[in-house]
Design a protein around this nucleic acid. Structure first.
Length: 121
DNA sequence: AACTTGACTAATC
DNA sequence: CGATTAGCCAAGT
């Protein structure tokens, strides 16, 4: 297990995060699955935590499997993430869950977005 | 090197 | 609903 392999995995995770369209969210597990790393949701958390800000990843579009922001409510991060999502039109329920309609992505999303130059849109 | 933590999750109770 | 358990495993102590 080399360092380069780890970096490649992190890169795939970051790609998967970057592939989440504006106004939609995905779960840590979902991102991991689309990155080819099923069952490794925690790794997504680590990847985002250690990701350089300069990458400008849409990290706020990643919520937990419950559809809630994973930062403790009341924390600065929680407020920020919620605000960023609200700014993209993501609705929240009274229980703090994001609108179910905005949750989850198809496995083909990556191909749809990055594959066929003409397929999508 | 042992032990703990954590931007997680699914299953059970 | 919440609490517990077990699986996950990179990083931090």
């Amino acid at each position: 297990m080399t360092v380069t392999e780890d970096e490649a995995r992190l890169a795939r995770i970051r790609e998967a995060v970057a592939a989440i369209p504006r106004g939609r969210v995905d779960s840590y597990g979902g991102v991991a699955r689309r990155a080819g790393l099923p069952g490794r949701a925690r790794l997504v958390g680590h990847a985002l935590r250690t990701a350089p800000t300069e990458l400008d990843l849409p990290w706020h579009r990643v919520v937990n499997a419950s559809g809630r922001i994973s930062f403790p409510s009341g924390s600065r991060q929680h407020a920020l993430q919620r605000r960023l999502l609200a700014g993209e039109g993501v609705r929240f329920g009274d229980d703090g869950r994001v609108d179910p309609a905005a949750r989850g992505l198809d496995d083909d999303l990556d191909r749809l977005l990055w594959g066929p130059p003409d397929g999508g849109r």
